[in-house]
């Protein structure tokens, strides 16, 4: 396959943010999406950790893409991802211990986040370094936005705060405890997914109507 096949770096970057958003369109990485989004700090730490691993995995896989044996490529992807996830896990335990305690097993579970291995497979193992890096940046941003949207709804309704800062005061707001529990994650994700799909269909309908008129 030619190195120039597939979307360009710019397209990859844009695609990651909205058109192919990892959470709302591809439905990848549902485990952290549901599990660590009851407050913004945890969600953004997860987004940062995933971004670092995705960036490193895409870069390394891209640099060695011509040496990969087809039937051993998944092994190489997983090895690379696992190495950087271990690094992130230990880094958090050393420098952000309370957050490391809060995220617990979800940091090691980044290893099995399909978003990362799918980007290695779809983009980094087939395209140039610049494209792979842009892809990692776009997808990371899209993932962070997805986590932030869910965490914002859950933290504000569940704790009455955002990034730990009170926005809905206790005097007039009773926190919805269900939002910080697992069901709150499913409610929020379901409603936001519905909203995203509704916007997407409406936009597609409008575009095709314009295309028909022209």
């Amino acid at each position: 396959m030619s190195q120039n096949d597939g979307p360009t770096a710019g397209e990859r970057f844009i695609n990651g943010i909205l058109p192919e958003n990892p959470i709302y369109i591809q439905l990848l990485g549902m485990c952290p999406t549901l599990a660590v989004t009851n407050n913004m700090q945890a969600a953004m730490t997860m987004a940062g950790a995933t971004a670092f691993v995705l960036f490193m995995a895409n870069t390394i896989v891209c640099l060695i893409r011509n040496l990969l044996k087809p039937h051993l490529r998944i092994l190489v992807f997983t090895l690379t991802i696992a190495t950087f996830v271990t690094f992130v896990d230990r880094f958090l335990a050393a420098f952000m211990y309370p957050m490391s305690q809060q995220l617990g097993p979800y940091i090691p579970l980044i290893i099995v986040n399909c978003l990362i291995i799918s980007r290695c497979e779809i983009c980094a193992s087939k395209q140039r370094l610049g494209t792979a890096v842009a892809d990692a940046a776009g997808m990371s941003l899209g993932f962070a936005l997805g986590l932030a949207s869910i965490a914002t709804v859950r933290e504000i309704l569940g704790f009455g705060s955002w990034f730990g800062i009170t926005v809905l005061h206790e005097s007039f707001w009773t926190p919805w405890t269900v939002m910080i529990l697992p069901p709150g994650a499913f409610f929020t994700l379901g409603l936001l997914l519905g909203l995203a799909q509704w916007l997407k269909t409406r936009r597609a309908a409008r575009t095709s109507a314009q295309g028909g008129a022209a």
């Binding site: 060695i64 040496l67 990969l68 051993l72 092994l75 190489v76 090895l79 690379t80 190495t83 690094f87």
Partner: peptide, 14 residues
Amino acid sequence: WLVLSLALVFGIGL
């Protein structure tokens, strides 16, 4: 060889 050498390099790094 690639898997083995990557494992070695990553192992030393970790």
